[in-house]
Design a binder for these strands. Structure first.
Length: 891
DNA sequence: CCCCTCACG
DNA sequence: ACGTACGTGAGGGGT
């Protein structure tokens, strides 16, 4: 049934706001902004909207919402919608945001006190239908299919909101064999659980459709009950005549609500790109920002992919002189490298930017350009950068020096939102700059497909990065000041990045032969173990495969399944330890695992990372990864070298000083987290214990078990230690019971007794959670901030997790602040005193140095002195120092 | 690319 | 009733 083309200029799109918001909310994971605002329903709504605008080209638009508590149907049927779960707060709080979204898009929204969105849409589609307008209704609610006519189509969202299925009378006939209005009869008979429409018991979709095809309507079915086949069905219908009529009434969408709105008031003529961009930035919809320019702009005309115009220059070899005066201060600098690992990556070129100018200097040009290299090394020329440590270390491998880093956008961005680990420049640009930057993956390609793009693409990309840095700095400075984070950046993270740069470049010397020897020893032991395990199993299999191992243990050997993972029975060490008494194979497997780990991760892994030029390992300390403020270490990770078991600890024998006759010196904080807890909780008992210099676990055991120091047994001390760990992690009886292998009841008992004695700790735990709920974030002593969007979640698991995080983060984060301060002071101290000793590694509560013999005495005193006085707390900090010929011997 | 497991604090 | 201890990174297996 083709309609006249010439009059098809109008297209009215009506959106069922509540239905789409609900769909989007349940289809998408619970996303939130760095400030803790939930946005998943908004994002889903936005995706749907962009799709509708692009595909349907509407000329008129309106979004209808439910309004008011008393819906007119309530008076007719009290239980109506009684079965519907209450709207969760995470969704309710998004409705105002969706209204903002629609305002940003200049789309008319409408609600009417006491009416549902259905009724508004029902009424408006009638009006539109009567005036012969082409109309499309967007909803997730199948009931709406009753509105379909020759003029009106209904698009039902599927799979959340990403796809839509369009229904015209033809599709309804094809799918159900019904006229659109008969959808009401269908609901009247089969009911709808989600709307608490009862329908007729025993009648589902199949039966309802069969009846309607034969009789046409609920009324006709009820008039002909006697002729209907099936005794039980007849009986059900007869007993529920009234309920069937009522159900049909409930399913009927009102078409004459007092909607005081003319369809002409819903004209849609495009959106204001600036308003939408601003809204997306607020919502942190970074991936959608690029689509704003693509969508039909309000000022008409251009569409397509082109980004906002960006102009830049490429500095060529022969013409460097004319650029010399453009090397100003301050200036944004970006060093582009080919690859993530800046200890190995070639440098491709430099991006430079300041007000109104932006240019690209290819590496070859930069090397020959004396004025540029001087500017780079001049610490009076201020540079604004993105990851100054990367630049510093990367350049130093190429014999170039960078100095005068005045602002690091990477670190600033991390401090503003530590939850989003490893800020990217494209992300920062989308949030803080006018100029757009493509993600590196899109420019270079990913994985095996990675390659350096052609020069024109590369140069623009790098120039854009520099421009984005330049434009972001003022806004980042403002935001840092608002959050009281300026000092943390300028006095801690920024200077630390240079300390870390020096440590990474210095590297730690490895005794390759020692690693090789250990590897050969492990090879032979593993061979023996493999043979033994295969014999005990009666068949060869891959011991490294949890799947195959599970089959051997639980199917073939029929051992009891104590714990399951998502994919099958667990074979983790804690489970295997419990199974050890059942079969001799278990002990061998545990041993195999232990040695296998040493071989693959440590012997082979570390050997691969020995730098060809230096014979050292140069890790990278990531300064912007963790949510708590700790560092992390990659390629290789030098913060998880074995120590707990003697066989693994031997790996540390391969970590040696880089100069003959020197020593390795290690200094670690004793109980730093519990001392921090004592300070921030103000617990008198805990403070007292530390001031008296007591063994904290023994003291805890004395207090919790009510015994004297002499009466504390090793078991009591072990349990007290676990309780202390639990306290720091944000204790739960379940977690403690797992750790100590005791019942939950016993664990709960321990916790209760602990809190009775350490009531200040208990008060702190309660207060910090309360404060986190109020502010949406927690902070460390130095104002480092972590947002906890889930702290108010209605989901028990998410909320509990956030609560434990609220308890743990100020403790772990403050301890991280302290050792970072100590590192900066330590580096200063070494320089001031003209010492040759070098700081090499940080392992969360430990610093590792290489020290000439002549400086051993000085360093043994200096290091703990600096570390213990890095920050003044209400309890003393204590540091233990050890030294030896290898890291292993520094114990 | 995800899952499991395990090394560290 | 819910089912986790906090924070990381790496290797091997399997899809």
């Amino acid at each position: 049934m083709e309609r006249e083309e010439s009059y098809e200029l109008s297209h009215f799109v009506l959106i069922d706001g509540n239905s789409i918001a609900n769909r989007a909310f349940y289809a998408l994971p619970l996303l939130s902004t760095s400030a803790g605002l939930h946005t998943n329903a908004v994002l889903g709504f936005t995706t749907m909207l962009l799709k509708v605008l692009e595909e349907m080209q509407p000329t008129h638009m309106l979004v209808a919402f439910d309004a008011g508590k008393v819906v007119f149907r309530h008076s007719e049927f009290a239980e109506y919608k009684g079965g519907r779960a209450k709207t969760p707060p995470e969704l309710s709080e998004q409705f105002p945001l969706i209204r903002e979204l629609l305002d940003a898009f200049s789309i008319r929204r409408f609600e009417l006190e006491g009416y549902e969105a259905d009724d508004i849409i029902g009424t408006l589609t009638r009006q539109a239908d009567e005036s012969g307008w082409k109309t499309t209704v967007i909803t997730g609610d199948k009931d709406m299919l009753q509105l379909v006519s020759d003029n009106v189509s209904v698009a039902l969202t599927r799979k959340g909101v990403s796809e839509m299925e369009l229904y015209t009378p033809k599709e309804i006939a094809d799918k159900y064999g019904l006229q659109p209005l008969q959808i009401i009869d269908l609901k009247g008979l089969m009911g709808d659980a989600s709307d608490n429409i009862p329908g007729v018991p025993g009648v589902g979709e199949k039966t309802a459709l069969k009846l309607l095809r034969e009789y046409g309507s609920v009324e006709a079915v009820l008039e002909n009950i006697d002729r209907i086949s099936g005794k039980k069905l007849q009986e059900n219908l007869r007993e529920n005549v009234e309920q069937a009529r009522m159900s049909k009434a409930l399913a009927t969408i009102m078409r004459d609500a007092p909607v005081d709105l003319d369809v002409e008031q819903t004209v849609y003529s495009g959106y204001d790109a600036a308003a939408v961009t601003e809204f997306f930035k607020k919502m942190e919809f970074k991936s959608l920002l690029s689509k704003v320019k693509t969508a039909a702009p309000k000022d008409g005309g251009q569409s397509g992919q082109e980004r906002a115009p960006f102009s830049f220059e490429v500095v060529e070899g022969g013409r460097t002189d004319s650029y010399a005066e453009k090397l100003t201060s301050p200036m944004a600098l970006y060093v582009e490298m080919d690859g993530d690992n800046y200890h190995h990556a070639p440098i491709l070129g430099f991006g430079l930017a300041a007000d109104g100018i932006s240019f690209y200097v290819p590496y070859d040009v930069a090397v020959e350009w004396q004025a540029f290299r001087e500017w780079l090394a001049d610490d009076t020329k201020e540079k604004w950068v993105f990851d100054g440590k990367r630049d510093t270390v990367g350049l130093s491998w190429h014999g170039m020096e960078a100095a005068g880093i005045g602002f690091d956008v990477y670190l600033a961005s991390y401090l503003l939102n530590a939850t989003e680990s490893n800020p990217t420049l494209d992300g920062v640009a989308a949030q803080y700059a006018e100029v757009g930057v493509l993600p590196d993956d899109e420019v270079f390609g990913k994985g095996a497909k990675r390659q350096v793009p052609e020069t024109s693409v590369l140069s623009e990309h790098v120039a854009r990065k520099a421009a984005a840095i330049w434009q972001s700095v003022p806004k980042l400075r403002d935001e840092l000041a608002q959050h009281k984070l300026n000092e943390l950046l300028t006095d801690l993270e920024a200077p630390l990045s240079l300390v870390l740069a020096a440590m990474e470049k210095q590297g730690v010397k490895i005794n390759r032969e020692r690693l090789l020897e250990m590897g050969e020893e492990l090879d032979s032991q593993l061979e023996t173990l493999t043979a033994k395990i295969h014999e005990l199993a009666g068949t060869p299999f891959n011991i490294n495969s949890p799947k195959q191992l599970g089959e051997i243990l639980y199917d073939k050997l029929d051992l009891p399944v104590l714990k399951k993972t998502k994919t099958g029975p667990s074979t983790s060490a804690d489970v295997l330890e419990k199974l050890a008494p059942y079969h001799p194979i278990i002990g061998e497997i545990l041993h195999f695992r232990q040695l296998g780990k040493l071989r693959s991760t440590y012997i082979e892994g570390l050997t691969k990372e020995i730098h060809a030029k230096t014979g050292k390992i140069h890790t990278r300390f990531n300064q912007a990864t963790t949510a708590t403020g700790r560092l992390s270490s990659t390629e290789p990770n030098l913060q998880n070298i074995p120590i707990r078991l003697e066989e693994g600890r031997k790996i540390r024998e391969a970590f040696i000083p880089s100069e003959a006759g020197w020593y390795m010196l290690a200094a670690d904080y004793s109980q730093i987290e519990l001392r921090v807890l004592a300070h921030i909780s103000g617990d008198e008992n805990l403070i007292d214990a530390f001031r008296k210099g007591m063994d904290i676990h023994t003291r805890t055991a004395m207090d919790v078990f009510g015994v004297s120091e002499a009466e504390v047994t090793p078991l009591m001390r072990r349990q007290a230690k676990a309780v202390n760990f639990g306290i720091v992690y944000g204790i739960s009886d379940y977690g403690l019971s797992q750790n100590l292998n005791i019942t939950r009841k016993e664990a709960a008992d321990f916790i209760e007794r602990y809190f009775a004695v350490f009531s200040g700790v208990k008060r702190y735990m309660e207060e910090i959670v309360k404060q986190a709920k109020q502010d949406g974030y927690v902070t460390t002593l130095l104002h480092r901030r972590r947002y906890l969007p889930d702290i108010k979640s209605s989901n028990f698991n998410l909320r509990s997790f956030a609560e434990r995080t609220a308890m743990n983060t100020p403790i772990q984060g403050t301890a991280a602040d302290i050792i970072k301060l100590a590192m900066i002071r330590m580096q200063e101290s070494i320089r001031e005193k003209g010492l040759k000793s070098r700081m090499l590694l940080q392992v969360h509560d430990e610093l590792v140095f290489e020290v000439p013999e002549a400086e051993l005495a000085v360093m043994q005193k200096l290091v703990p002195d600096v570390m213990e006085n890095a920050l003044k707390l209400d309890v003393p900090l204590k540091v233990d120092v050890h030294y030896g010929r290898t890291w292993y011997d520094a114990k």
